[in-house]
Nucleic acid binder design. Structure first.
Length: 797
DNA sequence: GCTTCAGAACGCGAGTCAAT
DNA sequence: ATTGACTCGCGTTCTGAAGC
């Protein structure tokens, strides 16, 4: 059996009928329908909801219920099978005709019956019950079900019969009773006791009364079983099953009981005692944390109740909706008020600070252990506030050398690649796995936002299709607009002149080339040294993603310090100048060409000047130290140069001074003499710690965008709202990790702003004296305000 | 064992202020 | 100018403990 149309849906019946329990042998559903067996139908019974049916029928019933979406009470028929003779090999149903069967009971082609009988005879499969008259009808069923009949699992076939309401047309699910051998009178009908079965329209509500009755019935029935037997070691399968049913119903009953629900809600919220709705105990911390995170998903915290209701409406089946909505109704008393949520944002944010401090201090301090931290900061104005976003990445000190070596070998790998990427990719994969194991938790979850520098006007179409006549003609057609077109005449002329002038386009080209330099510089700074300008294989998106997420991305300070940045700048300028020279059209006047080239040269000069002004500091100690971590197999001496310059400098920066200390100094001299870095323990650590510093703040800038995206719809927002916008994704991650309890403890010790401030070590801040109570807004200002007192005059965390 | 009191913690309604 | 989500100040209710 192949397809079936029901309510304008095409359903592949045989495919649908396969469930996971069947072994999924390959069924090509587009095969023609086939005859599998000769069967003898003992009886045809009508199905109704009170009928007890064996498991095989239940399975088929469920299937057809899913297809039709009806309960099939009185609308399905059971074909009890008495004898089955499987054919040696299945035969196509249609040998001659082209029309496909739609109905589930269909006439056989007149020639087929005798021929099948003949085949049976010759194969010796014929049995006594078959008789002389050849079969004339086929019964169609999903192939998996037929197979179950063949191997004896099913002893009956259940088929739906949905009478065709429309007079015309044929329906695949309507039984042809004449074919089954019935007249219109003696079609099996529902027995009297089943005809009163309540239909879907009569409101069947799942409530405690129903459950109570069901339990009573079950108990009464169980009692009748018990009266028959008096044995002490009585063990009846049916009775045990009944016990299980009663148990399930009782648990359901308990769950449906409003007071039980109230109790669980009370435990969750921590509110109240016996008269819980009138009581006002504090909420449980865990509950409020969840509520705040949930409220952040919504447009406004006040709509939480509504959202819960409609979510229940979407998900729950109809029977459960009414009781569940009632439960939520009672729950309205315990969804926190929006002002509560607003206040708790501060606590959540503060608690996360505490939590971060705790995790950061968990790494033991010391020279050999501890963590190396890289900061990335960016400030911007939002909502009239100066907002500083700092991102910290920590690498365990014990891992940093390993990471450095990994990074170096990654660079070596890619440097050695000529044109075949495959082996390098393999090595890279292994290295990446290593990195993933070793990398300490990083604090970043921001998306990069693309703010391009696109000033490129697409020249060709505009120039090709522009025509002043056409433009004027279009408006000149309408007399009413003639006046207007004459008024704007001079301006149109002006625009026309601009668009048609080659000088305009030439200057635009010069500008574009200048911006290409800037764009490419950004590309370079934001890329990683390993994959820069390398085309990711197009057939594997996973590799592309991995390259984009390369840990070395944006960490190019070592290269910058070695002067590579200015190399790149010069190279880009030269290349683009040459390209500009070539791309300027030949038709251009000589003086204009010179002017464009001059413009470009001016721009280049300005760029170089500005960048030199800003970046030259990287070429001198102490920032030159970053150059130590530079690794380029082509220029192995660069590192030594840098080291020598750092050691001979007079810079007073602590890190430079550290380099001059005993151990490091000795090892540095050894290194300059040609010793392998891997053998110089201290120096390698010192060097490696510079490798992973960020050179761009793009990642942080993404955070601002995130804040804006999240909070742009919110007015009158506090600092906590903004801050939480950034931290929420991490808080959510913690909530689903094993650190929940630690985090919740942090929230618990900082249950009010006052406690939070003292936990953060700001309790002695002078502003705190202004507070009138524990929830005074002044505490929030204390937490977020960056005044010198709170910045420098407190105990370090 | 009952009352009283202070403080904690939440809800209410008015006010605020950035976005539209 | 309007709007409406968010915040603020204040009132209400509950808790725990001292006082009687």
């Amino acid at each position: 059996m192949h397809t079936l149309s029901f309510q304008k849906h095409r359903i592949l019946i045989s495919v649908e009928a396969e469930s996971d329990t069947d072994d999924l042998e390959a069924h090509s559903s587009d095969e023609a329908a086939q005859i599998w067996a000769l069967v003898c139908i003992k009886a045809i019974r009508v199905y109704h909801s009170m009928l007890q049916v064996p498991a095989g029928i239940k399975r088929q019933l469920k299937f057809w219920q899913q297809i039709t979406g009806k309960s099939l009470h009185g609308e399905a028929f059971i074909f009890d099978i008495e004898h089955v003779i499987p054919l040696a090999c299945p035969v196509d149903v249609q040998q001659f005709g082209a029309s496909r069967f739609r109905s589930l009971v269909a006439p056989l082609e007149p020639e087929q019956g005798p021929r099948l009988l003949g085949n049976l005879e010759s194969e010796g499969l014929r049995q006594d019950w078959v008789g002389e008259s050849p079969p004339s009808r086929v019964l169609r069923a999903p192939r998996p079900f037929i197979q179950k009949v063949l191997n004896g699992t099913f002893s009956a076939i259940l088929l739906p019969h949905l009478p065709n309401k429309k007079r015309s047309g044929s329906s695949g699910l309507t039984m042809n009773w004449q074919l089954c051998g019935f007249t219109s009178e003696d079609v099996p009908v529902l027995p009297g006791h089943a005809s009163t079965f309540p239909d879907a329209d009569s409101n069947l509500v799942l409530d405690t009364n129903v459950l109570d009755e069901a339990i009573d019935f079950l108990q009464a029935y169980a009692a009748t079983i018990l009266t028959d037997v008096e044995d002490a070691d009585f063990e009846n399968v049916e009775y045990l099953a009944l016990q299980r049913c009663v148990g399930v119903f009782q648990r359901l009953l308990q769950g449906m009981d409003p007071s039980a629900f109230v109790r669980s809600a009370r435990e969750m919220t921590g509110k109240g005692n016996a008269f819980w709705y009138s009581s006002r105990r504090p909420y449980q911390v865990a509950f409020l944390v969840k509520a705040v995170t949930m409220a952040n998903l919504l447009r406004t915290a006040g709509s939480m109740q509504e959202v819960l209701q409609s979510a229940a409406g979407i998900l729950l089946p109809e029977v459960l909706q009414a009781p569940f909505k009632h439960m939520l109704e009672t729950c309205r008393h315990c969804t926190p008020h929006e002002s509560t949520i607003s206040r708790w944002k501060l606590l959540l944010d503060g608690a996360f600070m505490l939590f971060q401090r705790r995790t950061n201090t968990e790494i033991p301090r010391g020279s050999g252990s501890g963590a190396i931290r890289y900061l990335m900061a960016d400030a911007s104005t939002q909502h009239g506030r100066d907002f500083e976003h700092i991102m910290v990445a920590s690498v365990k000190a014990s891992d940093v050398c390993l990471l450095f070596r990994t990074a170096c070998s990654l660079l070596d790998t890619w440097h050695a690649v000529e044109d075949d990427d495959a082996p390098a990719l393999q090595i890279e994969e292994e290295l990446m796995v290593k990195v993933e194991c070793q990398d300490a938790p990083e604090l970043d979850a921001d998306h990069l936002q693309d703010d391009g520098f696109d000033v490129v006007v697409d020249e060709a179409p505009l120039e090709r299709f522009w025509s002043l006549q056409a433009f004027n003609h279009g408006s000149g057609q309408k007399p009413a607009q003639q006046q207007a077109s004459e008024e704007s005449g001079p301006r149109l002329e002006y625009i026309n002149e601009t668009i048609e002038s080659p000088e305009f386009w030439a200057q635009l080209l010069a500008l574009d080339k200048l911006f290409t330099v800037v764009r490419d510089l950004f590309d370079w700074v934001e890329s990683c040294p390993c994959h820069y300008k390398r085309q990711a294989p197009t057939d594997n998106p996973a590799i592309k993603r991995r390259w984009q997420a390369c840990p070395l991305r944006g960490r190019r300070l070592p290269e910058i310090s070695c002067g590579r940045f200015f190399d790149i700048l010069n190279r880009l300028c030269l290349a683009n100048a040459a390209r500009l020279f070539l791309e300027l059209p030949d038709s251009l006047a000589e003086d204009c060409r010179a002017a464009c080239l001059l413009d470009f040269e001016h721009g280049r000069g300005h760029l170089t000047f500005q960048l030199t002004l800003k970046m030259a500091c990287f070429l001198e100690p102490p920032l030159l130290l970053f150059g130590l971590a530079h690794h380029d197999p082509e220029m192995p001496d660069l590192q030594k140069d840098v080291l020598q310059r750092c050691m001979s400098s007079q810079c007073q920066h602590p890190l430079v001074q550290k380099l001059k200390e005993q151990k490091l100094h000795e090892e540095a001299e050894l290194f300059i003499e040609g010793e392998d870095l891997k053998l110089l323990e201290n120096l390698e650590f010192f060097t490696a710690s510079f490798r992973f510093a960020w050179g761009t703040e793009r990642k942080v800038e993404g955070g601002h965008a995130q804040v804006n995206m999240y909070a742009s719809g919110r007015r009158n927002r506090t600092e906590a709202t903004d801050s939480l916008a950034l931290r929420l994704s991490e808080i959510k991650r913690i909530l689903s990790s094993s650190d929940v309890t630690a985090f919740l403890e942090c929230v618990q010790v900082a249950r009010s702003p006052q406690k939070l401030v003292s936990q953060l070590g700001l309790a002695r801040h002078p502003s705190c004296r202004l507070a009138k109570n524990g929830w005074d807004p002044i505490y929030r200002k204390t937490v977020y305000h960056a005044d010198p007192l709170s910045l420098y005059n407190r105990d370090p965390p």
